[in-house]
C-alpha cells in the first residue's frame, strides 16, 4: 500500500521538534513576564542580579554547554559505529548534568538560608520600593526551578538512552531515541543560554 510506515524515525523526529516548539512557548510565557517586569523595575532587577554569584552561573553555563557537546559527540560516535565511545560520551553528559543540578542546589540553599525565597518573611514585609528586587527573585526561582525540572527530565531520558546503548537496543542503524534525547538536551541547554544573561548579567 502507498502509506508510509506507521513509525519511521523521520516522523518521530518531526514529532520531537513539535514538542520542542511547545517547550519554547512554555518558557516563552516566562520570558514575556520577565520582559514586562524588567521594563517596570529596571533598578530592582539590577540590584537583584548583582547579588547572584556570577562565577557559579558562568561555571554552570560552561558545564551545560560541554554536556550538550558530549551528547552530540555521542551521536556522532554511534553513526560511526563505535558504541563504546558513544556510551562514554553519554555518561559524561549525564555526570555533567548532575553537576549542574548540584551547583544549582548549592546556589538555591545559599539564597534560602539568607532569607531570600518566594514568600519569605523579608519579602512579605518589604515596602513598595523593594518590589522590583522581590519580583526579580520570584522570577529567578520560578525560571531556574522550572529549568531544573527540565534538566531532571532530560537526565532521566539520557539515562534510559544510556541503558539502551549498553544493552544494544541503540545501534548504528537504529538510533532515533538517542537523536531525540539529544535534541531535548540541546533544548535544555539553549533555554539556559537565554536564562543565564537575563538573571546573572543584568546587573
Amino acid at each position: 500500500m502507498g502509506t508510509a510506515a506507521v513509525s519511521d524515525s523521520q516522523g518521530s523526529r518531526f514529532g520531537m521538534w513539535l514538542f520542542l516548539y511547545s517547550e519554547i512557548m512554555l518558557f516563552g510565557a516566562l520570558f514575556i513576564l520577565y520582559a514586562a517586569y524588567f521594563l517596570k523595575y529596571q533598578s530592582g532587577f539590577a540590584a537583584g542580579g548583582s547579588e547572584l554569584d556570577l562565577t557559579l552561573g558562568t561555571a554552570n553555563t560552561l558545564i551545560l554547554l560541554t554536556s550538550s557537546f558530549a551528547v552530540a559527540s555521542s551521536l556522532a560516535a554511534v553513526q560511526k559505529g563505535s558504541m563504546k565511545l558513544s556510551g562514554a560520551f553519554l555518561l559524561s553528559a549525564i555526570v555533567l548534568g548532575m553537576v549542574f543540578l548540584g551547583i544549582k542546589y548549592f546556589e538555591w540553599s545559599h539564597k534560602i538560608s539568607a532569607g531570600i525565597y518566594p514568600g519569605s518573611a523579608a519579602f512579605k514585609a518589604a515596602d513598595p520600593a523593594g518590589h522590583g528586587r522581590i519580583i526579580f527573585y520570584n522570577l529567578y526561582f520560578t525560571m531556574t526551578g522550572i529549568h531544573a525540572v527540565h534538566v531532571t527530565i532530560g537526565l532521566i531520558v539520557l539515562m534510559i538512552t544510556f541503558a539502551f546503548t549498553a544493552s544494544g537496543r541503540i545501534s548504528r542503524d537504529n538510533h532515533a531515541l538517542l537523536e531525540n534525547a539529544g535534541l531535548y538536551w540541546h533544548l535544555v541547554d539553549i533555554l539556559w543560554i537565554f536564562i543565564f544573561p537575563m538573571l546573572y548579567l543584568i546587573a
Binding site: 514568600g119 512579605k124 513598595p128 519580583i135 520570584n138 522570577l139
Partner: peptide
C-alpha cells in the same frame, strides 16, 4: 509559596 508575581500588593 506566595511568590507574588501577579499580586499587586507585592509588586505584581
Amino acid at each position: 509559596f506566595g511568590a507574588g508575581l501577579f499580586d499587586p500588593s507585592r509588586g505584581g
